[in-house]
Amino acid sequence: MEILGTLWSTFFDLESMRAALPELLRVGLRNTLVLALFSAVIGTVLGMALAVCGLSRSRWLRWPARVWTDVFRGLPAAVTILLIGVGLAPVGLEIWGPNPYPLGILALSLIASAYIGEIFRSGIQSVDAGQLEAARALGFSRPAGMWLVVIPQGVRRVLPALVNQFIALIKESSLVYFLGLLASQRDLFRIGQDAAANTGNESALVLAGLFYLAITVPLTHAVNAIDRRLREGRRADGADHDQDPDLPPVALTQEAH
């Protein structure tokens, strides 16, 4: 009983949570969302570029895309974040001063782009080759056909995988704490972790975890909803069959002689 009570107060001490709540809300949540949103946008744009390059007929585009993808997908996120965040810090200092966020976002974007690029590539490749052929038969160039016809369909098919990647990104954003954050720069994880370290009680970190869940769980369900809609949307809703009242009198079909 004693032990259970101790465990309970270690994780669910309301007083500790209440103490951490204002900072989590005002500072941590904002910073986590900033990190995740910016790197999601940049990662998506870079990922699309990677996918297009990866599908190019030119090996000078395909190869760099391949290497980029292998490197940033293959490295542990912590390594990428440290290498970029610390390694490029002198350059960053010149450009925007001692703020670790731009480089943190850059590192997260690079990691995300590798995964998102592969997601887009598989989606684009899953589109029937007849679609590009039809676009080109109308007179569209290959790039125009890809952009107007193939890519929109490919992206639609991988929306669930894309949202999954955004969820991973929200969680990975906590790794920017490696770069050393000022009090006002701390994200959800860091604030929870600092409070836990200061008080010897994990409750603030549990609360930070609940914040993450509050963002990621709805997204997970959104994924499922998107998935369901895509599936059902593809089913023909009551295809009515050709019944033309005015067919010509000539029989044009198979008439053996």
Binding site: G130, A134, G139
Partner: peptide
């Protein structure tokens, strides 16, 4: 691309978008 604007094509599997 200009040539294909002058020549219409219809496919076995329709290939509508």
């Amino acid at each position: 691309d200009d040539l294909r604007q002058r020549v219409g094509m219809v496919f076995q599997h329709f290939n509508l978008f």
